[in-house]
Simulated scan of single mutants.
Amino acid sequence: MSIAENLRQIEQQIEDATHKAGRAVNSVTLLAVSKAQKINKIEEAFKAGQKLFGESYLSEAIPKIASLKEYPIEWHFIGPIQSNKTKEIASHFAWVQSVDRIKIARRLSEQRPENLGALNITAQINMFDESTKQGASITEIYDLLDFINQQPNLNLKGLMSIPPKQSSEAAQKQQFHKLQELFHRIKSTYSGVDTLSMGMSGDMISAIEEGSTMVRVGTALFGARPENWKQQLKGNS
Rank of each mutant, 00 (worst) to 15 (best):
T29W: 03
L30R: 04
L30A: 10
L31N: 05
A32S: 13
S34H: 00
K35F: 00
K35G: 03
A36N: 00
Q37E: 07
K38I: 06
K38L: 09
K38D: 09
I39F: 00
N40C: 06
K41H: 11
K41Q: 11
E43G: 00
E44I: 11
A45K: 05
F46W: 08
F46L: 00
K47W: 10
G49F: 09
G49P: 12
Q50D: 07
Q50S: 05
F53A: 13
E55Q: 04
S56W: 00
L58Q: 00
L58D: 00
E60V: 02
E60T: 06
I62N: 03
I62P: 00
K64N: 01
I65T: 04
I65F: 00
S67P: 01
E70F: 00
Y71F: 13
I73K: 10
E74P: 03
E74V: 12
W75K: 05
W75H: 06
W75P: 05
H76Q: 06
H76N: 10
I78L: 05
Q82G: 03
Q82V: 02
S83M: 03
S83G: 07
S83N: 06
K85F: 13
K85C: 06
T86P: 08
T86N: 10
K87M: 09
E88I: 09
E88L: 14
I89K: 07
S91Y: 03
F93S: 05
W95M: 04
S98E: 03
V99L: 12
D100I: 11
R101G: 11
R101F: 11
R101Q: 10
I102E: 11
K103I: 10
K103D: 14
K103N: 06
I104K: 04
R106D: 12
R107E: 14
R107P: 02
R107T: 06
L108K: 02
S109F: 02
E110N: 09
E110Y: 15
Q111V: 07
R112W: 04
R112T: 13
P113D: 11
P113V: 13
E114D: 13
E114I: 11
N115Y: 10
L116I: 02
G117C: 04
G117T: 14
G117H: 08
A118K: 15
A118F: 01
L119M: 13
N120W: 09
I121P: 12
T122G: 08
A123I: 14
A123L: 09
Q124N: 11
N126Y: 09
M127R: 01
S131D: 05
S131T: 03
S131V: 08
S131W: 12
T132H: 14
Q134D: 14
G135W: 01
A136K: 10
S137M: 01
T139I: 10
E140Y: 03
I141P: 00
I141V: 15
Y142A: 11
L144F: 00
L145E: 09
L145A: 06
D146V: 02
D146A: 12
D146W: 00
N149S: 15
Q150Y: 01
Q150L: 14
Q150E: 15
Q151I: 12
N153K: 15
L154C: 12
N155I: 14
N155T: 02
N155Q: 03
K157G: 07
K157H: 04
G158M: 11
G158L: 12
